[in-house]
């Protein structure tokens, strides 16, 4: 009985270690490219997410959004636009998705003429702890890691509820979040 307890305890410990190791798929890219001026990097930490509670909401849409992001603990974004530096081939979609560990499960895959999108998830039990998104095409590469307790239903309903377009996000990203 004692041995069985020890084995269960060790299994839990080993599982926690593997989860710790697996956290933040984007970290690998951040280590490599965050200081590269060709890349745009954005980090919104868990502390900042806590401060969102104090943000004044002036519309019901923002109130819905506030509700949707409950449970989220951070966002990391890394992106680059090849058209801005055509002579430098930093990395592409194919090599980006090769670096994703086996602990991540493919949630969705979209292959368009101009764009490829992959959604990966990292689960702990039945809860999605990380949503990792890779968008590539037309010389763009966009990586986003969303960490926390993620509700995909709430996520997908966001764009239906809110009229603000998110599709032009990549176009505006360069001016807003360029790394210095």
């Amino acid at each position: 009985m004692k041995t069985r307890n020890i084995i269960s305890l060790l299994s839990v410990l080993l599982l926690s270690i593997s989860v710790l190791q697996a956290q933040d798929a984007i970290d690998k890219y951040f280590e490599k490219y965050a200081d590269n001026p060709e890349f745009t990097s954005i980090i919104v930490s868990s502390k900042m997410f806590e401060l969102f509670a104090n943000v004044q909401v002036d519309s019901p849409e923002n109130s819905d959004f506030k509700d949707a992001i409950k449970g989220l603990k951070g966002i990391k974004i890394l992106a680059y636009d090849q058209s801005e530096s055509p002579n430098i081939q930093l990395t592409d979609f194919k090599s980006a998705i090769k670096k994703i560990g086996p602990e991540y499960e493919v949630l969705m895959s979209i292959d368009d003429k101009d764009e490829k999108v992959r959604f990966y998830i990292l689960e702990s039990g039945d809860i999605i702890k990380e949503l990792f998104m890779v968008v590539g095409g037309n010389g763009n590469l966009f990586l986003m890691s969303l960490v926390g307790d993620i509700d995909l239903e709430k996520m997908s309903s966001l764009s239906k509820k809110m009229n603000i377009g998110g599709m032009n996000y990549l176009e505006n990203l360069d001016e807003k979040g360029k790394t210095k």
């Binding site: 992001i69 986003m144 997908s156 603000i164 998110g166 996000y169």
Partner: peptide, 10 residues
């Protein structure tokens, strides 16, 4: 904006 982008792709 980032989450809306992800939401639209989803």
């Amino acid at each position: 904006r980032a989450l809306l982008f992800a939401s639209e792709k989803l």
